[in-house]
């Protein structure tokens, strides 16, 4: 579904070239919930943002849905992006639009007629259980409700992929659980492939099938959380697989 081939990202700065992501390859299969975990500054968000080319890789290619996004024209890229939904830590809703109009936004910009739009908005509000908040403005909603509107907005164009950039990091633990359930539900009901970035191990453990551990701009380990007989090498992976004692020996108690 998503293939990153030897992608890297470097920035030019006063002190020369700074590498944010070293050449890295990654494959996410259709229908899975894939997690990327690591400390802040490890490059997880950069990797995620490459998947819809919000961050253009310096080298390498990004293939989503069989299409190499790095070779797309601006118009082709816009069309491709309609089948890749994204949600963010800070929701990024349009503050001057109601919840319903926020969800209608991606449909509006891709030229869906008004009548079909209204129908789809209704469906999406139902999916996230916010039918009664259709005409509320984001300022009137709680954090969890805002994220649900953001999820509904991301689903409006019926994407095949949903990218989640720290989706629960601005939420309290209880709301986090609710949002993760919605994400899992969407994955199950609609078969949407999900890539989730988080620094929170509980979040990743709760929902992801496979994970990649990132450190200093590269993926140091990929593992299957459901499988057994794996030999985790990083502290994070050891903690994730429940091998607490061994991880603590390394002197890292949490991430």
């Amino acid at each position: 579904m998503i293939v990153l081939e030897q992608v890297s990202k470097s920035y030019r700065s006063k002190d020369g070239l700074i590498s944010a992501v070293a050449p890295t390859s990654l494959e996410v299969a259709e229908g899975e919930i894939f997690g990327i975990i690591g400390q802040s500054g490890a490059g997880k968000s950069t990797i995620l943002r490459m998947m819809n080319l919000l961050e253009a890789p310096t080298t390498g290619s990004v293939i989503v849905n069989g299409r190499d996004l790095t070779k797309c024209s601006p118009q082709e890229l816009r069309v491709a992006r309609r089948s890749i939904g994204m949600i963010f830590q800070h929701f990024y809703l349009l503050q001057n639009r109601t919840a319903a109009d926020n969800i209608a936004f991606p449909l509006e910009i891709s030229g869906v007629p008004k009548k079909n739009r209204e129908q789809r908005v209704k469906q999406c509000l139902e999916i996230v259980g916010l039918e009664d908040k259709a005409s509320a403005y984001p300022a009137q909603l709680s954090g969890g409700q805002k994220q649900r509107v953001a999820i509904a907005r991301a689903l409006a164009t019926e994407p095949k992929v949903l990218l989640c950039d720290e989706p629960t990091s601005a939420l309290d633990p209880q709301t986090t659980g609710v949002i993760l359930e919605f994400i899992r539900d969407i994955n199950k009901r609609f078969g949407v492939t999900i890539v989730l970035v988080s620094h929170d191990m509980e979040v990743v453990k709760h929902i992801c099938g496979r994970i990649a551990v990132m450190e200093h701009g590269s993926i140091v380990e990929t593992l299957d959380l459901s499988g057994t007989g794996q030999k985790p090498t990083t502290e994070i992976a050891k903690l994730l697989l429940g091998d607490r004692r061994e991880a603590l020996k390394g002197g890292v108690a949490y991430v």
């Binding site: 819809n52 936004f105 910009i109």
Partner: peptide, 19 residues
């Protein structure tokens, strides 16, 4: 971030300006 979100949805520069 709001502008990025719109970019990520495939909005054109003109749509981003107006909407």
């Amino acid at each position: 971030g709001v502008i990025e979100a719109a970019l990520g949805m495939g909005a054109t520069p003109l749509q981003i300006t107006w909407k």
